[in-house]
Nucleic acid binder design. Structure first.
Length: 922
RNA sequence: GGGCAGUUAGCUCAGAUGGUAGAGCACCGCCUUCACACGGCGGGGGCCACAGGUUCAAGUCCUGUACUGCCCACCA
């Protein structure tokens, strides 16, 4: 049977549940995440496991979920985000804190509206065919229909959120909060309405905030155009947008530009239209770019708008909100702007005013929702004057809120320092309608939380509500307190605000984090989070940012289906230290699925041995109805006094891991936590400890009882350590183990973090174990490199380095014999080496493996040469160091001493090996 | 233009307070050892981008260079 065939056969057996062990054990042979996860999800939900009960003493722990788009799909970024939050929540629960994790969804104004509009378009209709009310009703239906989708996906990740507190940005409570905030800011003069040049999407037909515009470099052209001067001659102007020419209201040059000094204050004539344009001076103009003269079009360029304000220029709109030329564009009226560009150029050409063109790459803004090129557009919009809010928000970091990693603080400050007023009105229908009404009678503007019955000034009844809705981020900005009940006080708001930590990607630091800080501080007087953890952004295969609407999302559900949620979560956790740019590879998830399976099988092994044929055993996995002790005694008591280096060692390592993991989590070093766990479980518990107790298990009697007690304790606590990262497999195993541990809770999610056992911290013992491991590894290496069949037992002489080591090795004779497969082991400090023999030095001990009957002299000679070279290289390196007087004098004495000992050891080892090699010469 | 990251094994990436380089996958050899072939044991593979500097000692600190990526601003 080939390797492949065997693999297939094994998979088949596991899949069909027909594995050879099936009837012998109560955990199936292979871990099948699908079934286990469904069962625990259902159970946690049914039992409301994650609804916090009355706050215990001590500080509660709370997180509000970054709300995903209600009709969106979970992408890998969400999966990562959720994993981190869930890890923190589950860990905090273990630490005894009252934990609230609030779930919810965002109405995602433009994105959701776009989706529904696309649907309509497929039916050949537009939103205008339905009318506002019917359209909104349709979006709500869509939301009801598809909202369950994202909810199920959050559940699939194992997120321990409290579903009884789920919120939606458009639900009644949150909408009330939105109106309250709007009205209050308006009364405080921090919300105002005005004309402004905004980023306009001619397709979405709405204004966009600056950070909703995405820039992309596109090849374009710069045209040089001659503007005739009133007094004769020309002035050369460079432009990338000739179609805006009809909207020019001035020409600008640099005040110190010698070429144009004489022209300042004079007039130029606008080509094709003949309007007189003042030539003004402003230091904004870059003398070195183009001709150094600039046409000023306040209505269609951000910078020109600023210039226009400064110099009191006329603002002439020539492109309408659909991207077509208006009537005042003369002969170009009615043309789409792209057409107009061609026509303008043709006309200039004809008039002999086009001097030339050249290639030019420039950054063009695009709508982050639909990708359409953004048109600067002057219109009446609502704004938040954010300066006063931003000052407070800036000062709160790091005093009130610490940002991790700290480097992001700088980005945060930078943004706060350069902040511009926030345009919050959007010309769409899906969202929070702006609570402002205009009186038809007297024109009074009324801003109220609820629709007023009549105009307070003229008593008129004809009031018209502002048609616009608020930027989605406006309601998002209130999320940390609106979800906790604000504007009502008390309750959750009192208990859980400020929240403990916000977990989010850096891509929405400005959109969201900064604004939550501003609103939280302004309305509650406290920053909304004590800490902000900024994690890496998961990008798609090409390294592009994934976004809700761009459609380049990767579906983690596929990964879950293939490898299980725990494998995905562990992978993401192991990734979580990289500052940025995560590109998730499927192979890696697959690799960690092996880890999950390894854990599962370690548990199967334990259960097999824990089953005491003289005592009770649980009936079934997953139900854990045992409740009876497995051998009468409290299995946890007196672990530290169980003799046996292997027991002491694993308990010692367990204690170290128990300390290291929370330390890493506290500092958001999730990858370190994952690595620590991985190494402990696989390389130590499975590779060594489980092998070491097999003889104990076979021996029966007291050794077996002792091994079982240690194994049970270690495995249970290991499950607790793993649980925040891998909730499902640990819950299942915990439940299966619970029958052996004296009637404890079968739900690991409610278990406290294991208490430290100071008596089990024994570094000296760990050192002994490591020495034995080194000897065993040396023996295995000899076997492997000399191609000695695994079935062949070895005859070995070990010359221990000293009496201490001799005693330790003697004390673990059976361990050595078993794990290195020996048939004879002599431990003699002066023992005579067998000839021929393979030799190796491990931890100072000289090891000889008799090669009688397995002679492969050339192989052994080659091996010895390799070994010698390795030793010599290391020795020379260290000797070089020690010959350096500076090193010897300045480095810590213990380090120098260590190196000296090592050199001596190496020298001795080399000498021994050389001696042996002599014997191998042909 | 300004700022910030990254550059470590074939690939994807870890390497906190400076002390002889690690993981996963891939690769090579042996093994159907009674938890696991999603496994076991062993192995090969890296002058840690480059150039200087600080230090007894630098992947790790400093300066500069070269690529790559991101963020912010934007030049008509």
């Amino acid at each position: 049977m080939s390797k492949e065939e065997r693999k297939e056969a094994a998979e088949e057996a596991a899949f069909s549940g027909q594995g050879p062990e099936e009837s012998e054990n109560f955990l199936p042979r292979g871990y099948s995440p699908r079934e286990v996860e469904a069962r625990w999800r259902e159970r946690w939900e049914r039992n409301r496991t994650f609804t916090p009960v009355a706050p215990a003493e001590g500080e509660p722990f709370s997180i509000v979920i970054p709300p995903p788009n209600v009709t969106g799909n979970l992408h890998i970024g969400h999966a990562f985000n959720l994993t981190v939050q869930d890890l923190l929540c589950r860990h905090a629960r273990q630490m005894g804190r009252t934990v609230l994790w609030v779930p919810g969804e965002d109405h995602a104004g433009i994105a959701t509206q776009n989706v529904v509009e696309r649907r309509l378009a497929a039916e050949g209709k537009s939103r205008h065919d339905l009318g506002r009310e019917a359209f909104i009703a349709r979006v709500w239906r869509w939301k009801e229909e598809y909202g369950e989708n994202i909810r199920a996906q959050i559940k699939a990740m194992g997120a321990s959120v409290d579903w009884s507190r789920e919120r939606f940005t458009m639900d009644e409570g949150l909408s009330r909060a939105v109106r309250r905030v709007f009205v209050r800011l308006h009364r405080e003069g921090l919300i105002y309405r005005g004309d402004y040049i905004v980023n306009w999407c001619t397709r979405c037909h709405t204004a966009l905030a600056d950070d909703e515009v995405e820039y992309a470099e596109l090849p374009g052209k710069i045209w040089n155009i001659r503007y005739p001067l009133e007094e004769g001659g020309f002035i050369g102007i460079a432009t990338t947008r000739p179609e805006t020419l009809p909207g020019d209201s001035a020409v600008a040059v640099h005040p110190e530009d010698e070429r144009y000094l004489g022209l300042i204050g004079k007039k130029a004539v606008l080509p094709l239209l003949g309007r007189r344009l003042t030539i003004l001076a402003d230091s904004y103009v870059d003398r070195s770019f183009g001709s150094g003269a600039l046409k000023v079009t306040p209505a269609h360029d951000r910078n020109d708008w600023e210039l226009g304000l400064k110099h009191g220029l006329e603002c002439i709109q020539v492109i309408d909100d659909n991207g077509r030329m208006k009537e005042n564009a003369g002969v170009f009226a009615g043309l789409p702007k792209e057409e107009a560009r061609k026509k303008v150029l043709e006309a200039l050409e004809e008039a002999g005013l086009l001097e030339g063109e050249r290639e030019h790459v420039h950054n063009v803004g695009h709508c982050y929702r639909c990708g359409e090129i953004i048109e600067p557009h002057v219109s009446t919009q609502w704004f938040v004057a954010v300066r006063p809010l931003a000052e407070k928000a800036r000062a709160a970091v790091p005093a009130e809120t610490r940002i991790y990693p700290d480097s992001w603080s700088r980005t945060y400050y930078n943004w706060m320092d350069n902040i511009r007023d926030w345009c919050i009105s959007r010309q769409i229908w899906w969202g929070h309608r702006i609570p402002a009404w205009t009186c038809r009678g007297c024109g009074e503007l009324i801003v109220e939380e609820e629709a007023p019955a009549a105009c307070p000034r003229c008593r008129g009844k004809e009031l018209e509500q502002d048609p616009d809705v608020l930027d989605t981020w406006f309601s998002s900005a209130l999320w940390p307190f609106s979800t906790l009940g604000w504007p009502d006080s008390g309750g959750d708001l009192e208990t859980f605000y400020p929240t403990s930590v916000l977990v989010t990607g850096f891509d929405i630091i400005f959109f969201w984090v900064a604004r939550m800080m501003m609103m939280g501080l302004h309305f509650l007087g406290k920053a909304p989070f004590r800490e902000v953890y900024i994690h890496a952004l998961v990008r798609d295969a090409k390294g592009d940012k994934m976004s809700k609407s761009r459609g380049n999302v990767i579906n983690p559900l596929e990964m879950i289906a293939k490898y299980g949620t725990d494998a995905l979560r562990f992978t993401l956790t192991a990734f979580a230290a990289m500052g940025r740019d995560i590109r998730l590879s499927e192979e890696r998830i697959e690799g960690y699925r092996h880890f999950v399976n390894k854990i599962w099988n370690a548990a199967r092994f334990a259960l097999m041995h824990l089953r005491d044929e003289t005592g009770p055993c649980p009936e079934k996995a997953g139900e854990g109805d045992g409740g009876r002790g497995w051998s009468g005694e409290n299995p946890e008591a007196g672990l530290e006094s169980i003799p046996g280096t292997h027991h002491e060692w694993i308990l010692h390592r367990l204690e170290e891991t128990k300390r290291a993991v929370p330390a890493a989590i506290r500092e958001y070093r999730f990858n370190d936590a994952a690595q620590e766990l991985y190494k402990f479980v696989w390389s130590e518990l499975c590779d060594w400890y489980l092998e070491l107790i097999k003889p104990d298990m076979q021996a029966g009697g007291l050794p077996r009882e002792q091994a079982r007690r240690v194994l049970l304790a270690v495995l249970r606590e290991t499950m607790l350590l793993l649980h925040p990262v891998m909730p499902f497999v640990t819950a299942e195993i915990w439940s299966a183990l619970s029958g052996f541990a004296g009637g404890v809770s079968p739900d690991i999610a409610l278990e406290p973090y294991p208490a430290a056992r100071p008596a089990c911290i024994r570094p000296a013992c760990a050192g002994r174990m490591e020495m034995i491991q080194a000897v065993i590894t040396a023996l295995r290496t000899i076997r492997a490199e000399l191609n000695i069949a695994p079935s062949r037992a070895l005859r070995v002489l070990i010359r221990p380095a000293d009496e201490d080591r001799a005693a330790v090795l003697e004390g673990h004779r059976s361990m050595l014999v078993r794990l290195a497969r020996l048939e004879e082991l002599r431990l003699e400090r002066k023992g005579e080496a067998p000839r021929p023999a393979a030799e190796q030095v491990a931890a100072g001990n000289e090891i000889f493996v008799s090669l009688e009957g397995v002679v492969d002299l050339p192989a052994e000679r080659a091996r010895l040469d390799k070994e010698l070279a390795k030793l010599e290289k290391e020795r020379l390196l260290l000797q070089g160091k020690l010959e350096n007087r500076n090193y010897v004098e300045k480095a810590p004495a213990e380090l120098v001493e260590r190196d000296r000992r090592r050199v001596a050891e190496l020298g001795a080892a080399e000498e021994k090996l050389r001696g042996t090699r002599q014997g191998f010469m042909p």
